[in-house]
C-alpha cells in the first residue's frame, strides 16, 4: 500500500528528509544520502559554488538518480533576501519547491517568524511550494497554512542542539490542527526521537547534524531511515492509550448492572 508524502505537486516514498551541511566531504555526504533512502535532500543556495567543484553541494547531489534536490534559503537575513534566494533556487533546480529559512541571528539560528511569514506569502503568491522552517508556534503554523504553504516545518529544538523534541507539546497542537503536512525540522539527535516524532503524527522529519556529526554518518542515516519507518508504522497502527495506573483485567465496577 502506498503511503506517500505529498508536498505541493510532488510525492515522496520516504518520510525522511536529509540536510547536507556539516559533512566532512562529498563522498561521506553522498553515502549518507543514499543509505538514508531519502528522496528529498536539502542544500543551502549559499553553498552552491560553480567556481570550485570540490566545494559545491549542488553538483554531486544533482547527479544522484531518483533524488529531488530541495534548495533552502539558509543564510538569508530577511524576507527580501530569502525571496531572491528562493528565485535563484528555482532557476538552479527547475522546480518551485523551496525550504524557506530566515535566521537573522547567525549564532542560535532561530527562525524569524515575521520575516518568514512575509516571505512565505510573497513566494506562495508567486507559485512556489513553500516549506517554511518555523518556531513551534501553533498560531503561526495556521497562518502559514492560510497563505498557501505546502507544509510547515516546526523545530523540535534549536538547529544543531541535539535537544530532541523539546517542543513536543507544541508540536502536538500543530499536528492536531494542521491540514497540511507537518515536518519536524532541527534539533533531533537520536533515531528514537525521529520515531517519537513520527508516532506523534508528524508527516516527516528532517535531520542534518545528527547524521553529519555522527561518528559513522552512513550508518546513522540508515538508523534514522528505519526509525522513521517504524514511527510511521506505529502511528498508522494506532498506539494504545497511556495510563498512570494498571488496567485490571477484571474491572472493579463489573458488579454494576448496565
Amino acid at each position: 500500500m502506498s503511503d506517500l508524502l505529498i508536498l505541493g505537486e510532488h510525492s515522496f516514498a520516504s518520510r525522511l528528509l536529509l540536510g547536507t551541511g556539516k559533512f566532512s566531504d562529498v563522498a561521506t555526504m553522498v553515502d549518507a544520502v543514499q543509505r538514508s533512502g531519502s528522496g528529498l535532500v536539502t542544500a543551502s543556495i549559499r553553498r552552491f559554488n560553480r567556481e570550485n567543484r570540490d566545494d559545491d553541494l549542488f553538483g554531486p547531489l544533482s547527479r544522484l538518480p531518483d533524488l529531488f534536490l530541495l534548495p533552502n534559503t539558509s543564510g538569508a537575513m530577511n524576507a527580501r533576501e530569502a525571496v531572491l534566494a528562493a528565485r535563484i533556487g528555482r532557476e538552479l533546480t527547475g522546480h518551485g519547491l523551496v525550504k524557506l529559512e530566515i535566521h537573522p541571528n547567525p549564532h542560535h539560528l532561530m527562525p524569524d517568524p515575521i520575516e518568514t511569514f512575509t516571505a512565505a506569502r510573497e513566494l506562495a503568491a508567486d507559485g512556489f511550494s513553500v516549506l517554511p522552517y518555523m518556531p513551534a508556534d501553533p498560531v503561526l503554523a495556521k497562518r502559514l497554512e492560510e497563505i498557501g504553504c505546502a507544509a510547515v516545518m516546526p523545530l523540535g529544538s534549536a538547529i544543531g542542539s541535539g535537544q530532541g523534541l523539546a517542543t513536543a507539546h507544541l508540536l502536538r497542537l500543530i499536528i492536531e490542527n494542521s491540514n497540511i503536512p507537518v515536518i519536524v525540522d532541527a534539533g533531533l539527535r537520536a533515531p528514537s526521537e525521529a520515531a517519537a516524532a513520527m508516532e506523534m503524527g508528524c508527516d516527516a522529519v528532517l535531520v542534518n547534524s545528527a547524521v553529519a556529526a555522527a561518528a559513522n554518518p552512513g550508518a546513522m542515516a540508515e538508523a534514522f531511515a528505519q526509525a522513521v519507518r517504524a514511527g510511521r508504522r506505529a502511528f498508522q497502527a494506532g498506539l494504545m492509550g497511556r495510563s498512570d495506573t494498571a488496567q485490571a483485567t477484571s474491572p472493579l465496577t463489573a458488579f454494576l448492572a448496565r
Binding site: 566532512s24 566531504d25 553553498r47 567556481e51 566545494d55 527580501r80 533576501e81 531572491l84 535563484i88
Partner: peptide, 23 residues
C-alpha cells in the same frame, strides 16, 4: 581534508544579499 574536514570556500552569497539600506 585528511583530518576529516570540509574546507568551505563559499558559505555566503552576494547575489541575494541586501547591502546597506536593505540590511
Amino acid at each position: 581534508r585528511a583530518r576529516g574536514f570540509w574546507p568551505v570556500l563559499k558559505n555566503s552569497d552576494a547575489v541575494y544579499r541586501d547591502t546597506g539600506a536593505g540590511c
